[in-house]
Design a protein around this nucleic acid. Structure first.
Lengths: 338, 338
DNA sequence: CTGAAAGCGCTTACAG
DNA sequence: CTGAAAGCGCTTACAG
């Protein structure tokens, strides 16, 4: 059933040269006389030759696959990231191996162990979760084996891992300061996600801005579980408990949307009764009503920087890995009023 | 830099057996005496041996990777599908190679050509787009080369491709009939996406229901480009033109959300002035206000069926490939009234 | 049940 | 600039 494919042997025969010469033409790895080169190229065309990636990989000790480990592809943010990372990698000839972590640390660890044998070109870790020791150890093993590990989303340079990150702390500090300047006194924070490094950073920005305004109140900080439902439940619970607040900073757009639903169900209007600011600017943000004020992201730029790091063949294991920082901007829409 | 890995040679030496025996233990492909088996297993453990997937792949002529080609990972529906497909494949030991088509036919074609050399375990095509001849030809080449091709989303069994699909036509026919029974006379359809096989089927269901009710009016059918923005623009344009309608069936939830924003911006209330029904039941559907009435999907079941087809080693190239049909249900929420 | 040997399709020293 | 040969790490007839 399985057809026999054209190999370098056939090409060499057809072109009247040796295997080595064919290989040199394929890889452009050594000088080949113009006429032989042409014969080989014609033979490849005539026979519709395509090199076998497995064989190349085995021999070179390297595939052209990059693994992307995402926190949870079901989250808008990660889906967007995946989209752009795939595009950026493809444009430089790399395939994308996708691994959905579902926020499970153990899965990350297991994959990293396995990655050691896969001869990947790079492993990209895109998770917001706080990482633990075993993960770092597995990553170090990869690194010392010459396999690139890159962090997308959180700064892991202290672990020797090049990172592409967005502003987090400054972002919420800025947006909350904006809410304060609008006259809000009681501003709640919904979504200080437990176990999330990024979530903590966003929360810290909020906290610092509130402290500066002398308005920080731990009772207005709500943890929660997961996305829409979490945003909804947190706010529903707070309202049931009689908490008072005139504004709300969410840890993500999805949480913000859930929060808005909860406010709505209690008869509270956004932004009239409660102003809401999300985080991340998912594509839907501009299409809900009221449109969602939020903090921007740059998944496209992030993916481009990442691709550059993947391509970059600078000496492995630099003591001082690069950290690329992407800014965020407050995108003011109707949900925050004024 | 790159460390030398443990190979079968070391394991064989350590266990005092031949390479062949080690291989047999790894693969469980032939009977090995209990004592030798144990020695090998101990050696593998002691040396922390992990087989090299590239070498195995080259020798066997088969990887354990499955390619998933999705219409557009930025769309909720595809992101969810990807999540479940990855999980299902992983549980059977397969890696996922993700390819985002961005709805570009040419990319599908190119990838299919390339897949021929990749020795993939299967290629899963998950797109709603109407496919063209060159794509089918490339698929046939894969099929005849013994590589599984599976369609996720549209019925391609006539092309010899096993398919896992959802009801489309019946779904909109049912939901529109429901709207009719609620007393609606003018029901618009937004999102008969050009070039989308699935979009056409959904539209046909609407059309048939409207015809049956003697209410079909082509002026109430609006094509559009892309997701939220499209839903918004279509409806905004229709309203500006003075079209009258009391209900609206959308081709997707995202389109429905965009449509609702447009209605809102014209001062129309949902469902009081216009009832809205979406399609797909994305996770957000229950968390917008009013909550979105929509047609359910079963990405989890779809992924499971798919995984089964991937695993299934029945004779290649059956003349009559299976078509697995998943039902949809109308999920009634606030946006459709009553 | 077991081992020696060939071979999957390439690339890369090595020698010329 | 070119070719013959070795070898990447496995698996699989083949012979016993």
């Amino acid at each position: 059933m399985r057809a026999r494919h054209i190999t370098v042997v056939e090409v060499a025969r057809h072109a009247g040269v040796s295997l080595a010469t064919v290989s040199r033409v394929i890889n452009g790895t050594a000088v080949v006389s113009p006429d032989k080169r042409q014969q080989v190229e014609q033979a490849m065309l005539a026979l519709k030759f395509q090199p076998d990636p497995m064989a190349q990989g085995l021999r070179r000790g390297q595939t052209n696959a990059v693994a992307l480990l995402v926190g949870d592809i079901a989250q808008r943010h990660f889906a967007q990231l995946t989209q752009h990372v795939q595009a950026a990698l493809e444009s430089q000839g790399n395939d994308l191996l996708l691994f959905n972590l579902g926020h499970q640390q153990k899965r990350l660890e297991d994959f990293l162990e396995r990655a050691l044998r896969m001869k990947l070109r790079a492993v990209v870790v895109a998770t917001t979760d706080t990482l633990t020791r075993p993960v770092f150890e597995a990553a170090r093993k990869l690194l010392s084996d010459g396999i690139k590990v890159i962090s997308l989303g959180q700064d892991l340079t202290r672990q020797g891992i090049p990172s592409v990150v967005h502003e987090e702390h400054q972002a919420t500090r800025g947006s909350v300061t904006h809410l304060v300047s609008l006259g809000h006194q009681s501003i709640a924070y919904v979504g200080r996600i437990r176990g999330s490094a990024i979530g903590s950073a966003r929360f810290a920005g909020y906290r610092d801005a509130m402290r500066k305004a002398n308005r920080f109140d731990p009772a207005l900080v709500w943890d929660m579980s997961f996305r829409y439902a979490a945003g909804y439940e947190s706010v529903a619970k707070a309202l049931a408990e009689g908490r008072e607040f005139s504004a709300l900073q969410a840890g993500s757009d999805e949480i913000a949307l859930g929060a808005i639903a909860a406010l709505h169900d209690r008869g509270l209007a956004v932004p009239k009764d409660v102003a809401v600011v999300g985080f991340g600017d998912i594509d839907l943000a501009g299409f809900v009503r009221p449109a969602l004020t939020t903090l921007s992201s740059s998944p496209l730029q992030a993916a481009d920087h990442l691709a550059q790091l993947v391509r970059d063949d600078s000496p492995t294991l630099p003591e001082d890995p690069p950290c690329i920082l992407l800014p965020r901007q407050l995108i003011v829409r109707a949900s925050s009023g004024q």
